[in-house]
Design a protein around this nucleic acid. Sequence first.
DNA 1: AACAACGTTGAA
DNA 2: TTCAACGTTGTT
Length: 268
Amino acid sequence: MSTAVDIAGPSSSDQAHSSAKIPNEPLRPSLKRSNHPYSLSHYISTPSPAVDVKGLIQPSQAQQRAAQPAHTKPRRAPSWPDMWESPSGLHLAHAAELLMRAGLLALTPATTDGSGPEEEEEDSSGCGTDFQPFLGAWFPFSPALFPLAGFQMGGGHWRSAAMGAEGIEGLVAEGYSPGSLGASSGGRRKRKRCGECVPCRRQTNCEQCSSCRNRKRGHQICKYRKCEELKRKPGGPGFESRVSGFDLRGSDFTLGLAQERSNGALDG
DNA sequence: AACAACGTTGAA
DNA sequence: TTCAACGTTGTT
């Protein structure tokens, strides 16, 4: 029931200005697409229990060098807590904790003697495949754990088949895939719009807000089409509402829009 | 906090 | 290769 809506922008005469590049239909098709490089069967059938997740989420030094040419300004490396926050506010660590409570996730002692091949070549950032800080114990991150725990990866979502897909889907990170967690980007990921909130369902740019007027340099989507999910900081207030069973997605948009209008916040 | 600018990602 | 737009950083 994703009927396209087209809330009037700052003025009622803006519709004619919509860019030819703007899709004339809701964005669901592209949102549903997933180019995840690995299928679930890949992880299940991979002979080595340790698919090179470290390589996926932490590129090699050579990859990092390639990803960051010398002429570009050095950017702050994303911190690991940041890496593990979901746009809908659920820390992956919380998901892991839930699994632990359900007895589905094993913990290993905090040994650092590098007994396996995965342990060698730990770089200065200290990011291996174990994540003690999040759980107070070591969290062995292996993709094999997710199938074991009933998690499925697909459609850009992490689902839990064991807990009931409907219930957990809203809890678990949306818009992320292992690939977007750094498989090819050296850690920088790009969230996707939810496609369901009111702004996402707008079809046209207003062409009057600062983002529209400054599109060449600003590289920003029309203010009235900016996804509500993307407006939130990952791991922000959304977390509580999502966990407690409420999905406030888009609920504050109308209020915010009315407020913006009354305040004249939008330039134009 | 809002805005502007830019680098970068990801899809077409 | 192009383009839309997200993420980050600096400025106001």
